[in-house]
Nucleic acid binder design. Structure first.
Lengths: 333, 333
DNA sequence: GTGAAAGCGCTAACAA
DNA sequence: TTGTTAGCGCTTTCAC
């Protein structure tokens, strides 16, 4: 049972194919009566326009592609939510692809190219900058969470360096001096800026001698190893973790070692994921304005669609959300 | 700057378009040397096949669409992960659409139709059964988490009724008798089966007189209200919540009321989301085999692609994961 | 208001 | 092993 085409609808309505096309797209051309006939015929037949044919003829797709690199990270949900809300009535479809790992990431980008997406939003891409640039030349592209320098694309990052300093400053204000860092992965968009922010903040506060960096990765395993390493030499009174997962991993490991949070060790995480916000967890964390990032991405795409060609880059400022995992040093001892 | 077409590649390689098409798709036809020339030409030009044209000519898309209705639910990540892992080397693309709310859900389904997806996986769809059926007639379709009766589609559900009974039985075994239920939403695929499971289990255990149902929705607000309602009359010693979010909401509310878990009230959640597994949370919960569900969905799609036409339905059995939010009544008192 | 005709870039017979 | 020829279903001039 072939699916109905424009011609079928035209035949049934007794008009030409052109007219049906125009009418179904809401363009002028048909009389009110004819319009009704056409719409009726289309609905009788269960006509659904063929995107491939349409895109081919139009040479564009009215779709924008969003690439995620980790479905488990609640970060994305909010970003995509923000994006979606702004794009809702613009007539664009959003299609998401999951690119976990370099290979899949590339395959998703190829799909976007192949489908002639009009826009792309890449959240935390890990592919080479060259590849990002070449995507940017093919379609409006917004990169979130990675500072790429090409101006073929727009970039939204939050200031991890500043966020890290916020974390250290917060701990400092609570009286902590022996503040260690649990490092993230050294991939693009990974924990580098956060580590640098930690180091710079420590220096600025005159705490060079307390700088200690352990771990090196975003998993629970990395967190536990990092904690072990730190505790082996001297237990710090506070920890700044590269993200919430690491922070929670550290909490768990500390608790296995008989140490409490914040009683023995204060901890600050990063990303303010929903899990940090759980009252049972109560993790002090650095918040990135996720929904806002998504909305901004939508705006940037629309600007590009409207003709902007120069690169636009945005550094959003994170803020600290204080919860129960940090306390003053007095309380601590 | 037009993007290169098959003809451009052919011209550059000095061969016919057909040959390029065949070669680039890995089919026989060209000599080894010619093949090299062609591949080189394509790569020089940065040729990317046009999906629209290809799909139009092929009358199919090599893509399968996955619809999520709530990006925040970690359930999806695992299901999609399972799906992806099975489909990885099959040459199919996976494109996801987020359909939060009926309207968006429909728009996602239209997109799938319009793109002539070969397969669709709908996770927790809320649209009418008619609409699902009509999608099923157009492409291989797997519905996850909702029992639809049409046999135009395959269905995977987990046995919520049994899962709920598991929860109640667990609490019963711990000595609890006054076990209340925090209800979920009464939407398709919502909390209905869980509620019925609760009621049936209570009856079967001779606890009719203790049956109490409060709340009615999947948000923290619903949870808090439900707790208030229950506590106002008589505080139950145990709670079975429609999902983890509700369970956590209840925990928080109880704690605001000065009641501890499991000290004063034991709680069982549902879905075993990652947040339940956090050691700081330690929520006893009912686990659905998520990855397995995703893998099964992939298998079902492949069977359909291979020619199966009769409906296949699967009821997967959930299991209880015991953590720290439940304890024996003795301890409780 | 309405229709005819020419592609969009590709695949798939069919010839050569 | 290679090339020719028709479409796929739609949009878009351009003419009526």
């Amino acid at each position: 049972m072939r699916r109905p085409t424009l011609d079928d609808v035209a035949e049934r309505a007794g008009v030409s194919r052109t007219l049906v096309s125009l009418t179904l797209r809401g363009l002028a051309g048909a009389s009110e009566e004819t319009t009704r006939t056409i719409v009726q015929a289309a609905s009788d037949l269960g006509y659904v326009p063929d995107a491939a044919a349409r895109n081919l003829a139009r040479k564009s797709s009215q779709s924008i592609g969003v690439m995620l690199n980790d479905m488990h990270n609640p970060f994305f949900a909010d970003v995509v939510g923000g994006l979606q809300s702004r794009l809702l009535d613009s007539g664009y479809h959003i299609l998401m692809g999951v690119g976990e790992g370099l290979r899949l990431e590339r395959s998703v980008l190829d799909t976007f190219l192949s489908y002639r997406m009009e826009g792309a939003v890449l959240i935390g891409p890990e592919v080479r900058e060259r590849e990002i640039e070449s995507l940017g030349r093919a379609m409006a592209t917004v990169i979130i969470g990675r500072r790429v320098r090409t101006d073929a694309v727009d970039v939204i990052v939050s200031d991890d360096h500043k966020g890290a300093m916020l974390a250290v400053q917060h701990l400092f204000d609570l009286g902590h001096r022996d503040i260690a860092h649990l490092d993230g992965a050294s991939i693009p968009g990974g924990g580098n800026a956060r580590r640098r922010g930690y180091v710079d903040a420590m220096r600025r506060l005159g705490l060079e001698q307390h700088i200690r960096i352990a771990g090196g990765g975003f998993t629970l395993r990395h967190a536990a190893d990092g904690v072990d390493e730190l505790v082996r030499t001297q237990r710090p009174t506070a920890l700044f973790a590269a993200n919430d997962r690491v922070a929670l991993g550290a909490m768990e490991r500390l608790s296995e070692l008989g140490l409490s949070t914040p009683g023995d060790v204060s901890i600050v995480g990063y990303d303010n994921t929903s899990i940090a916000a759980q009252r049972r967890v109560g993790l002090t964390s650095i918040d990135q304005p996720r929904v806002e990032i998504g909305e901004l991405a939508a705006t940037l795409l629309q600007e590009r669609f409207a003709g902007r060609t120069d690169a636009s880059r945005h550094v959003l400022t994170p803020k600290l959300v204080e919860r129960d995992s940090t306390s003053t040093l007095e309380t601590t001892r």
